[in-house]
Design a protein around this nucleic acid. Structure first.
Ligand SMILES: [Mn+2]
Ligand SMILES: [Mn+2]
Ligand SMILES: [Zn+2]
Ligand SMILES: [Zn+2]
Lengths: 117, 117
DNA sequence: GCCCTAAACCTGAATCATTCAAGTAAAGGA
DNA sequence: TCCTTTACTTGAATGATTCAGGTTTAGGGC
């Protein structure tokens, strides 16, 4: 939990590495188990942009969205455009019971953009 | 292309089966190759909700979104809530060059909902 | 302190979608 | 007809994640 909080949309192997530095030795499986439990408990949010392994973050329950760089894969938080929890109201829900919205903006981050004119 | 058009957010194995019925024999790899080419050409859209294999659709370029059922996995189209291409304007783009928005609403579809009170 | 159960954790193998590699057949233009 | 490109094939590899046990650890009740 501390490791995910300290990091920024980390993937599992990165979390694994970081947890190891913290406690000496942990198996990758233990990290998967822990993340899974924390996620089920609603303490961690899991996002998986296509092409990338899953990423975890501690910022949960506030319906925020993500900018993902197509070049370097960086994930950046972005607040919801329409206010509180507006993304939960599409024009026509087609009878769906909507629980959560998942919004990813794809583009190029400032760093990658400055390197490619 | 015809198979994807006729279907509705089909995954690759389903497309494979359907194409086979159409032409007798095709390898799965050929289907992957074809879908990849059509996607690169911008003729097909690819979505991959987490936990599910990739799905393809022919409705492209109109910035529409998707409802995904947590129970049965059904994918349903839903028009953009804010009009034309509004989802491309988050409050603060953090310097990102935004090209595309990917919105998935998670919930329970009418069918699954009626079966579970 | 001892016993017992539950939790935490480990190793190793399996899964599954997708991709890589390398080869063959077919087609088409020069 | 020759040469180059495209389409397609088979088989193996990849990589994230999960499954399936087995082993240690910890703590509460007696
Ligand atoms: Mn975030
Ligand atoms: Mn669609
Ligand atoms: Zn970048
Ligand atoms: Zn459903």
């Amino acid at each position: 939990m501390r490791t995910v909080r300290a990091g920024d949309h980390l993937d599992v192997v990165t979390i694994h590495r970081a947890v190891r530095e913290r406690v000496g030795h942990v198996s990758l499986q233990a990290v998967y188990d822990g993340l899974h439990a924390l996620h089920r408990a609603g303490l961690l949010r899991k996002i998986e942009p296509m092409g990338s392994p899953a990423r975890y973050e501690a910022r949960v329950g506030d319906n925020h969205h993500h900018l993902v760089c197509r070049m370097c894969g960086t994930v950046t938080d972005v607040d919801c455009a329409t206010g509180e929890a507006p993304c939960l109201d599409p024009v026509d829900a087609a009878g769906f019971l909507i629980e959560e919205a998942d919004v990813i903006y794809w583009g190029v981050c400032p760093d990658c953009h400055s390197q490619n004119p």
